[in-house]
Structures are given as C-alpha cells and as structure tokens.
C-alpha cells in the first residue's frame, strides 16, 4: 500500500469486471460490473433466476466465470494463467480472505458448534488450537450462542445454525463476507436474529456482498442496492432511491410485486 494515499479511495475491496457466466448454452450472467468499496454493504436483490446467487458464487469461484475478472482487495481471484495446481492453491488462499454464508447453512454435522468454528483456522491456517478456541468462543458470544458451543448442529434451530455459520466464516478473519440468501430457509420468527448479527457486522465495518429477499434489511443496512434481472444489473443506487423512487420500470415492477 502507498502510505501517502488512502487505499480506500483507490482499490475497492471487491471488484467485478464484465462478468459472464453460462451453464452450457444458457447465459446466466451477461456482463456484470460491480465494485464494493471497503467497509460497505452492497445488497443485491432481484427475482429468482436473475443470476444473483451465481454472481456471488463466482466471486469466490465456487462457480468458474465464463469470462470476466474478479478482484479481491486488488488481487485477481480467477487468475487461471498459472496452471491447474497453482490456481487451486491460489484459490484456497483467496478463499481464506473471503467468508461465505449459505442458504442451507452447511454446518459440518459431525462436529460440535465450536469445532465447526475452529476447523478452518486450525486445519487451513494452522493456527494454534487454544488461541483459536478463545477467538471462537468470542465469536460465538457475538452471535449469542456461546452456551451452544458443545452442541451438535442437529440440535440447533435453523436460525441458530445460520449464526454459527456466520461465526465459522468470521473465524478466518476475512476481508469481506458473501451472504447468499441466508435467511431464505428460515422460519419467519428466526430471521430477525440472523439479520441482527449481520447488521452488527456491518456496523463493525465488515465489507459485505449480500444477496437477499429481505427488503427491510436492504433498506436499513445496505449502503447501496443493486437490482438484477436476467443476468444484468438493471439499477444500482442507494437504498432510499431504489425503494422510494426507482428509476427503472423493471425495478418498480419487482418491488411492487414483492411488497404487495
């Protein structure tokens, strides 16, 4: 980093350039450009099938983009030039800095809650176990589940599992977090706790890219909201504008459909 310049002004935390993704003949993303500046929360909304989850999964390369470039903190994520083995190693390194939370939680069912949180720091980053444990306990406290540290995921509600999943991702001390419809599989009364944890995280300055159907969250926590449809960005604006005065007809249509 250049000491004389504020890096926040130059390098966005996440930068997506001309991203295309097709599944076979079916184009899902048709040229998407996004920048997420440091410590900002970018929320992506849109109808199902609009490509928003695929977009998120391209960022940490769970899906490989058909073309386009993705940067995390200035570093090219899909840098495939160096051959398969080197690319795999590079990806593992990048993924350590990029937390992801899934719709289906995907906790490891054969491990207790605290083992879930400790797994990657201990086995991927090779950090010392006792130090990781105290950090994991701190994270579980933050998501309100320290008392469940010894429980197995199957003993927890969906909302609790999802908060553990957030703690698990945070244990890697990532630079940014990806949230893929993390409340969509939850019973309505459990959604609030998860969103509160995410709002806390945003307030603490985490850079977040969030795909969600929770318009309230988008409005209150998002710094910017992107409306996507059919694999392209239709509108990109601050939440106030998008929700009170959308410019595009498709955005208006979508919002009136879901807010009915």
């Amino acid at each position: 980093m250049q000491p004389e310049k504020n890096p926040n002004d130059i390098v966005p935390m996440i930068r997506i350039e001309a991203l295309h993704k097709s599944f076979g003949d079916l184009p899902v993303l048709k040229g998407v450009d996004i920048e997420v500046p440091r410590q900002q929360v970018l929320v992506i909304i849109g109808p199902s099938g609009s490509g928003k989850s695929t977009l998120l999964r391209c960022v940490n390369h769970l899906e490989s983009p058909t073309s386009g470039k993705i940067y995390l903190d200035g570093e090219l994520v899909n840098d495939t030039a160096s051959g398969h083995k080197a690319f795999e190693k590079h990806l593992n390194r990048v993924r350590c800095k990029l937390g992801m939370v899934f719709q289906q939680f995907n906790l490891f069912p054969h491990m207790t809650v605290i083992e879930n949180v400790m797994e990657a720091p201990v086995y991927v980053l090779k950090q010392e176990k006792e130090r990781v444990r105290s950090r994991a306990e701190g994270l579980l406290e933050k998501v309100g589940l320290l008392d469940k540290a010894g429980a197995y995921p199957s003993m927890l509600s969906g909302g609790q599992q999802q908060r553990v999943a957030i703690a698990r991702a945070l244990a890697m001390e990532p630079k940014a977090m990806l949230f893929d419809e993390v409340t969509s599989a939850l019973d309505p009364e459990l959604v609030g706790d998860v969103l509160r944890v995410m709002a806390d995280l945003a307030r603490d300055g985490m850079t977040m890219l969030v795909v969600t159907h929770e318009m309230g969250f988008a409005e209150q926590v998002g710094d910017r909201v992107i409306f996507m449809a059919d694999g392209v960005i239709v509108e990109d604006a601050p939440p106030k504008e998008i929700f009170s005065n959308p410019k595009e007809a498709r955005t208006r249509q979508f919002l009136s459909d879901i807010l009915k």
Partner: peptide, 17 residues
C-alpha cells in the same frame, strides 16, 4: 450433500483436506 464440499472449499480447504 454437495453443500458440505462447498462450505469446506469456501473456508479455503484444499479438496484433499
């Protein structure tokens, strides 16, 4: 379930780990 593999990989695990 494939989500287990995805969760593991998203945490930076190699496919062997």
């Amino acid at each position: 379930p494939s989500g287990q593999q995805e969760a593991a990989r998203s945490l930076g695990m190699s496919s062997a780990l």
